[in-house]
Design a protein around this nucleic acid. Structure first.
Lengths: 298, 298
DNA sequence: CGGGTTCGATACCGCGTCGTCATCAGCGTG
DNA sequence: CACGCTGATGACGACGCGGTATCGAACCCG
């Protein structure tokens, strides 16, 4: 049962006239007659009663008309549906992000994407770098928002945001009285650091900064993530270096201060498989760039 | 969107392997690759991710797979449905019949048709000859069970049953005491006759019989149909000639007797448009013949 | 009742598309 | 590094579709 024949049949069934149907289909009448005859012999059923000058549908023909219309309409809808997915206006996109991206630009990017592509279902999940890397390689997620970035042959990485580090201190700390704090002056404080694995870790990053400033923190405490670090700071365990955007989340007992000294900052990046060609991904990257450009202008 | 391509796509999507899909479709691999590529360019959407040795469906491809399966299955079901209608195993058939066919063979024919073609919806309606003729010509019904038959250039008629006439008498009639009644002996009785139009009417038929027997009934009463005639007989208005099958419906106050004399009987016929080619009609005619043959044997 | 008109069917032809075989190109693997 | 596997590409023959011309039947109308 060829689709063309179904379309032809619907035209004939609706016009009840081969000539008019043919001109509606923009073909000549003879091929139309033949296609209908062919359809009938394929099905082994008469569809059209030609016994009179005014042709008429048989019972089988009436039923086929209904069914054919339904099928053709479904195919048409499917065509449009598929096209929208192919253009990235529909479908779904799976994004993972590190916890420290929750504040700052990511929410803006998400919001912008949502309003530009409201029919795309965004699946968001928080993961640390290691989980992200595994998931994006396994194609469980499409985009990983990582800090600073995921390095792998299979992956591509694009910078999203470069931000400075700032000091997080207990709000009862005497250090707050100074206007500016030189990092090296804090060598005696307890530093809250982060997991050492996988290398190179953010812990290494912080320690390198201290080394650049000529000291190694004497006293160190480990926290799983920035939130935990901030908690430790709030109860007076020590001080921490965190990305500036983390300070956007106000926390009782914690104060933030810029510091003087080596500040390579920390980067947030968008990571995805090189071979991932889905349009949603490119749309997301484009939106992210737009948001960043706009934010930088302000 | 060609149907063949949809079938091909489903095969590839299910096998996730062009070679296997091609052999499943019993074609070579190159045309399959080309057809899929063609489908993709028709839709303007990538359906298959060929970036790895193990191919994979894109989001658009996954959705298309679902939709295509659905459409193909619908078409398959439609194919079978249409075929069944074309063979007369499904669909509907509209039959009209004269009231006097309610007893006798028609119920048996209907029953036999119902059991042979249980999925055919039978629309039954009682009509007199004039209504039947109009309805069958207007294609409002497919078969008219008429007495004796409908005559028209557009129609064809097949005998269903030839049955003798019998006398209907009041059960208090003194005529009952004789074994056999000669029709001419009843010339003084009141005869219940039937509408005179349209010509030739059943009234004419009865009067012809009387003429053959050499008399014209002196006293005549008109009844719309056999049931009314029997009612009139039951209340002692007169006597009536009715088809033998009508006597199957026992009626208090009425007795039936065979009579001696001219008895051309009366025919029941199946009537339908010459140009009506629907299989249900032929099936019905065949069943009717079978039932009649069987009944005659008994 | 016969000629003209209308409408679907048939005959034949040219072209596009499909399927085949042969071959290429990329990637993974021993 | 060579080989094998897999999908893409090229060239070619065959079939099917649509086009024009024409037929045949039914209907209309004077």
């Amino acid at each position: 049962m060829d689709l063309r024949r179904l379309v032809y049949f619907v035209a004939v069934a609706e016009e009840l006239h081969f000539g008019r149907a043919a001109s509606r289909l923009a073909i000549a009448q003879p091929p139309l007659s033949r296609q209908i005859a062919q359809l009938e012999s394929d099905l082994g059923v008469m569809l059209i009663d030609r016994s009179r000058s005014q042709i008429r549908l048989t019972q089988a023909g009436s039923v086929l008309l209904e069914r054919a219309r339904d099928v053709l309409e479904r195919l048409d809808r499917t065509h449009r549906e598929i096209k929208r997915i192919g253009e990235g206006f529909s479908g779904h996109l799976r994004v993972a992000f590190v916890g420290s991206a929750t504040y700052g630009v990511l929410p803006n990017v998400i919001k912008a994407f949502r309003s530009a592509y409201p029919d795309v279902e965004l699946a968001l999940s928080a993961m640390n770098n290691a989980e992200q890397k595994r998931a994006v390689i396994q194609r469980e997620i499409d985009i990983a928002v990582a800090r600073p970035s995921l390095e792998d042959e299979e992956l591509k990485s694009e910078p999203l945001l470069q931000e400075p580090l700032i000091l997080a201190l207990s709000d009862t700390s005497p250090l707050l009285e100074r206007q500016v704090t030189r990092l090296a002056a804090l060598k005696a404080e307890t530093f809250v650091l982060y997991p050492r694995k996988p290398r190179p870790s953010f812990a290494d990053h912080i320690l390198n900064i201290c080394l650049e400033e000529g000291f190694i923190p004497k006293s160190q405490v480990l926290a799983q993530d920035y939130q935990t670090a901030i908690s430790l700071v709030s109860v007076g365990v020590g001080i921490a270096l965190v990305p500036k955007s983390v300070s956007q989340a106000e926390r009782p007992g914690v104060a933030y201060r810029a510091y003087e000294g080596h500040n390579p900052g920390t980067a947030l990046s968008l990571n995805y498989r090189r071979d991932n060609r889905m349009p949603h991904l490119f749309n997301f990257l484009k939106i992210a760039q737009d948001v960043m450009r706009r934010q930088r202008k302000q």
